[in-house]
């Protein structure tokens, strides 16, 4: 039934938020609290008459704000939401490559040292794409193939064009597709990092 899976999704999202809020804690303590609260929610849901969305929302409200639970657990965000370092990360990862690559490296350093993002986000931010937008822009500047054409033509004689191509030969559409992907991917990842940062 649809309402049931909606309720499941809400619980799943809540537990994700909680896990993120507890990021400052050692892994075992984080696991323990998440497991306990997950069991708590199961117990509470088992006592509900109908497991509809509104009931589950009310239930989660009783369980409490993830930030509040994290505060009780002593999880002080190293640089919490709103931390200036976190705010810089998506921009540095995207555009830092233009500053002699140092900017990008700084962005990746901040990304990995922050508790805001999960491992998956950190891997994404680092690997897609190393250097950020600087990479495709750099590639655009490199000639992939050098073509030289000699046109020999005389009046009355059909023009004959001789073209020789040297260097790496890539069909133009492949080159364009690769560059478009290399442009789009880091932008998408930066947007993702920014969203993850803003989520409470």
């Amino acid at each position: 039934m649809n309402t049931r899976s909606d309720a499941d999704r809400i619980v799943e999202r809540y537990l994700d938020d909680l896990d993120r809020a507890l990021a400052g804690l050692p892994a075992s303590r984080r696991r323990e609290i998440c497991d306990e609260i997950s069991v708590h929610i199961s117990e509470a849901r088992a006592r509900l008459d109908g497991g509809d969305e509104a009931a589950v929302r009310a239930l989660l409200e009783r369980v409490g704000n993830p930030e509040e639970i994290a505060a009780e657990a002593g999880a002080r965000a190293v640089s919490g939401p709103g931390g200036w370092a976190d705010a810089l990360v998506p921009w540095l990862v995207l555009l830092g490559g233009f500053f002699f690559l140092i900017g990008w490296l700084a962005g990746v350093g901040l990304l990995w040292s922050s508790a805001t993002w999960r491992l998956r986000d950190k891997l994404l931010g680092t690997l897609v794409v190393p250097g950020g937008l600087a990479l495709p822009v750099l590639l655009l500047g490199l000639p992939t193939a050098v073509g030289t054409c000699n046109a020999s033509g005389r009046p009355g004689v059909p023009t004959v064009t001789h073209c020789t191509t040297s260097g790496l030969v890539i069909p133009p559409w492949v080159g364009i597709a690769v560059v478009v992907m290399l442009l789009a991917a880091p932008i998408a990842v930066a947007v993702h990092l920014e969203r993850a940062r803003r989520r409470p």
């Binding site: 909680l18 323990e32 609290i33 306990e36 609260i37 069991v39 708590h40 117990e43 509470a44 009783r62 369980v63 409490g64 704000n65 993830p66 509040e68 639970i69 009780e72 657990a73 002593g74």
Partner: peptide, 24 residues
């Protein structure tokens, strides 16, 4: 845990929310 959390939040309002009992 669940029993403790409900007791403390229902009757006495000694915890701000049920979830905070677990870190405690």
């Amino acid at each position: 845990g669940f029993e403790l959390a409900r007791t403390l939040s229902d009757d006495s309002r000694l915890v701000a929310s049920e979830g905070t009992i677990y870190p405690l």
